[in-house]
Design a protein around this nucleic acid. Structure first.
Lengths: 202, 202, 202, 202
DNA sequence: AATGAATGAGTTTTCATTCAT
DNA sequence: CATGAATGAAAACTCATTCAT
């Protein structure tokens, strides 16, 4: 993702492949740039440049800026899906949840610099378009909540939904603080606390 | 704050008083509108209108938009100072912290609609002006952390700073989730959990 | 014309036939869409879509947008030629002219919605390209004037050209009003008046 | 109107007077340029330039292009109101109507070059914004129809509304033909015919 | 001649900031 | 200090036209 701006279509690739690749490149660039600069501060030109695509051409793939934001959100959803799928290879729900925390902590440098991608997007979209994309952003978070609740249910704890909220709120809170204080160690320490908490359950 | 937009200077007031009042009105309007609409979506004209001040005049009180944002941050700092002063009337540090949680929960409707004023500002400013206002926003949060750490220290728990981070992260996390889900009850439930946690310490 | 957008080339048709059919489909689509949406509001892509032709392919049949407009004008000329040919089956010039009025009135619903195809095109082209296509549009109208003048001449009235102008102006005027007022009955009533006028001559 | 583009605010004029003058200048420029170039071909920059106003400043007076179009329509309404007021100085309704025709004919050069301002705007707006400004344009025409109907009623002819439609349709038709043929004499000749027709009534 | 994709110029609109009075 | 008005630099979006297969 970091070097996506230099990814150029291979010479020998067919048109169709190039087009799909460009769309993917644009989506990845959108996810990255929107996270780093925020929705309002990001111009279409910024995403275009990051993806190595002329500005006018972006509109061939995404009719509006909002569609690019939507694509970025979908990218985050996909990331999450991949992560949970990976975690589900472990049959123990507690281990799965701790694996989730590990994943969060492993992103601590990014979080300290730019915050949680989903969380910051949610905050911005809530102001940008009440009753539109903000709901889409909320869905991403809801997806995370649902998955966590499933694990808590499997764990047999009471009020799995409440536990899920606590877990995700913990993640969002520590990301925001790590970002505000520009201190990735906040993630490490709060991650430890969350793991201890998970161990203490049931 | 709600009726700040209709506050007009009294006829008999002196020039200086009027000027100070105007500045106060602008600051209050900035704090409110910036919270509700976000920094990027708010035009100077919006704040001017909310404060009942002609647009061109704003610049005699605040040279740039950033100064208005700074004023809004100062307003939040003042709110916090007033709150902690009030809480300090209780000699028990644990009661103070629980009072803080109560104050947060009492703002649940606002949080569900617009998020935590300081938190959302922090997120936005981090993107807006890396190395500028974002640091100011961070200071507000640091102030809160410091105060909480003091109470934890007085409580005699180990790692008071870590506990402060956990508490404030809990607040930011539950505000963000309440906002995303548009559900004030998230604040109520997580507030309860924080209170229970505080009771369990030492 | 209504179903032109679904017309697809038959599988067994030869290359040439397909090409000609495509050109015809594009011309018909141009005539229709340009009438309904206007020249400036119509994108090449709109015409391509209506004709079921890929956008890039349009340019093999029409080098520019203006050529498409020209084709649409030719289509209207052809319509007019077919109509007058049909009318000339009646030897009585007065009957021919009344038949022309009948034809106009029969199009009242279309006129009320989109105006006279030729008239609205003329108005638009006059602004679009002074000294270019507007002259082509004028030719269509001149053709109508000439035919009408012939009939008036055959009728033996003095100043056949002046009568032709009166007749066609009556048509354009009632079309414009029917369109502005969105009232097809304007066509009916003014058509009656024109017929009465024709009967009163000589 | 012709030299409006060189009209500059007088040095000694007050701000308020200048502002009002600028708005008037913009409205006049809009009416003229929109008539000459058409709505779609006219950029805000064209109107700004014609009025001697920087582009960005236009938006201080008119929030959108549509508002400028609306102002132009209002200008035409005002022209019409002034004209009818002038005509009403004559007590004879027939004379009033003939005076209206005279006014139309006197504009023949403009009509031959750009068509009837209201008529061409109506045609364009019908395509541009179905259910918006087109209705406003229709109102201008309706105003003319109403005034004419009043005169016909005063004349004591049956179906005054129908006669009004015939008159106005005659005007629109002859304007369109004069424009298409670029021949102002069409206006002269059809104007004569309308006057004769008016004399023949009752 | 077929076609999806590319390009770049043009247009509307928004706003922070400045200026004239 | 007051204030309406001015300014100019973005930014999103559209599209005719062209190009690489």
């Amino acid at each position: 993702m970091t070097d996506s701006e230099t990814e150029q279509p291979a010479k020998g690739s067919t048109r169709a492949a190039t087009a799909a690749a460009k769309r993917r490149r644009l989506t990845a660039a959108a996810a990255q740039v929107l996270h780093e600069k925020g929705v309002e501060r990001t111009a279409i030109a910024d995403i275009a440049q990051a993806a190595g695509v002329p500005v006018g051409n972006v509109y061939y793939y995404f009719k509006t800026k909002d569609e690019l934001v939507e694509a970025a959100l979908a990218e985050h959803t996909a990331h999450l899906a991949a992560l949970t799928a990976e975690l589900e290879r472990d049959p123990d729900p507690r281990a799965r949840l701790k694996g989730l925390v590990d994943a969060w902590v492993s992103q601590r440098e990014t979080a300290a610099r730019y915050g949680c991608p989903t969380g910051t997007l949610t905050v911005e979209l809530d102001k940008r378009d009440p009753g539109g994309l903000d709901e889409t952003a909320a869905q991403v978070i809801r997806g995370l909540l649902d998955w966590a609740a499933q694990q808590f249910r499997a764990l047999g704890v009471p009020d799995p939904d409440g536990h899920a909220v606590t877990l995700v709120a913990g993640y969002q809170g520590m990301s925001l603080l790590a970002n505000a204080l520009r201190d990735p160690e906040v993630m490490t320490r709060e991650g430890d606390r969350l793991r201890t908490w998970l161990d203490s359950l049931a």
